[in-house]
């Protein structure tokens, strides 16, 4: 599993510049299936959103379901790529190559729903 941490996560509290509360710290899991084009696209989309909107307050785990069968099973991942927002609560899931940035942002509660 590849874990990308952008924060100093001691005590489970983000040490981000604004000193905001825990709710603003994001833990994301991205499930992909091997190095397909779709996987690569999904990784790129998620990274770019994180860099732009969550800089300094996120943790992104990239999980290849071929390697981490048990983890994918545990999370009942059927369709891939799948992005799971573990924190802040409520958990949310997104499925697809995540190319639609508007949907991504509303899915991550970063903007109000576009619907």
């Amino acid at each position: 599993m590849l874990v990308e941490k952008e924060t100093d996560n001691t005590n489970g509290l983000p040490a981000n510049a604004l000193g905001q509360l825990d709710e603003n710290y994001y833990v994301l899991q991205l499930y992909i299936a091997g190095h397909s084009l779709r996987s690569i696209q999904a990784i790129a989309s998620v990274r770019s959103i994180c860099e732009e909107y969550l800089l300094g307050r996120y943790e992104l785990q990239i999980i290849d379901i071929y390697q981490q069968t048990k983890l994918a099973e545990h999370e009942h991942v059927v369709a891939v790529p799948a992005l799971i927002k573990k924190r802040p609560l409520p958990q949310r899931r997104m499925v697809g190559d995540l190319t639609d940035q508007g949907k991504m942002l509303s899915g991550l509660d970063l903007i109000a729903s576009t619907d």
Binding site: Y31, A33, V78, G96, D97, T99, K103
Partner: peptide, 22 residues
């Protein structure tokens, strides 16, 4: 496999490799 409708949003292409692998 538990599938819960409420917390899934779709954005772009996907496949069912998760199901195949499992």
């Amino acid at each position: 496999i538990s599938i819960d409708r409420v917390d899934i949003e779709q954005s772009g292409d996907y496949d069912l490799d998760g199901l195949f692998i499992r």
